[in-house]
Simulated scan of single mutants.
Amino acid sequence: METQWRGDTELVRAASRVFRSTGAAAVAVITPQGESTATLGTDHQATFEIGSISKPLTGMLYRDATERGLVQPTTALRDLLPLEGHGEVGSVSLGSLAIHRSGLPRLPPGMHPLRRTVDFWIRGQNPYGETLADLLDQTRTVRVGAPRPRYSNLGFQLLGHAVARGAGTTYERLLQEVLGEGFSTPARAGDLGPSDLTGFSRFGRPLPAWVGEGLAPAGGVRATIGTMRGFLRSILDGSARGLSALEPVSKFSPRVGIGAGWITLEFRGRAITWHNGSTGGFSSWIGLDRDAGVGVVVLSAVHGSVDRQGFRLLTEFTATRGGLA
């Protein structure tokens, strides 16, 4: 595999300083002066799993749907999904799901997280893979807790599929219609093509793809670096739909705000809107300094956080090309 970064010179230098990964990776930066892309061990046509960056995408679909009058923040899950006989979960509102304040657990009880983790690391099995019907069936015994901040993959899975039902379509079709055709949500391993990268553990072990219809809105989206760069551009130039999802409307913790899926915090004196992602064999990060007009996306086909690299690149390019001294 190619071990040298390739692409725009300034970004290649910056990426070479902050990355020590030996796996495939790609970075895109947008500033008021232009756009830059760099790749390592891959090309611009390769698709990466973006993990939980799927959640802010889902948040934008939700906000776009509310702005079009297709759903409301007070709309209950049972109004959109077949949840008859599923107890408390049907009464959960879309608005509470979008800010991780629904009272739902991180994962549905039927997932048996420990067993699935063992199956994944020991046997190489995909820990997800449920259809939407499977996912809904897993919610039958869910108990809804207090409406306090609690990060929930289950919540965003249900939110995305509910919003798609409200729009009269599937999640993938809604995602492509609203945010761009470059995004994909493979439901089965057989849906993957030659451009879909294989992810690796930090020790170099190839790992199975995280695919599944149920997973898509919370962590099952794939994209190329070009798709992510275009998505960043649309946010910064104001042309993206559902942009209100980036505006914090609630506290997620004392120093962290949350919009619809998007997280906001102060980093080195700057207001940063961001999210990260991690699957079995991939890591990702997206962040924007909206006041400076700078955005960064980092995609890696190796499991392990790239948050440090993302924040560092955003800080560097904000200082040098974001109009700041």
Rank of each mutant, 00 (worst) to 15 (best):
T224P: 00
V163Y: 02
P206L: 09
V249P: 08
T117M: 14
A76S: 06
G295Y: 03
M228W: 03
L40T: 02
R78T: 03
V71G: 02
A26R: 05
V178Y: 07
A162H: 03
G129I: 06
T47Y: 07
F252T: 10
Y128D: 03
P73L: 02
D43N: 14
G124K: 10
L154F: 04
T198M: 15
T139Q: 00
S91F: 00
M60R: 11
R68G: 01
G41C: 09
L324C: 11
L83H: 00
G242V: 09
V297T: 08
T318C: 07
T141N: 04
T58L: 05
R229T: 05
S250K: 14
A260S: 13
G281N: 13
D64P: 05
N153F: 13
T320W: 09
V221T: 08
P147M: 02
L61T: 06
G280F: 10
E177W: 10
A65G: 03
G160P: 03
D79W: 00
R78I: 07
S36T: 07
L136W: 00
A319R: 15
G259K: 06
D8K: 14
T66G: 01
S21F: 12
W121G: 03
K55T: 03
F183D: 05
I263Q: 09
R20Y: 08
D289P: 12
H100I: 06
T22M: 09
G287K: 12
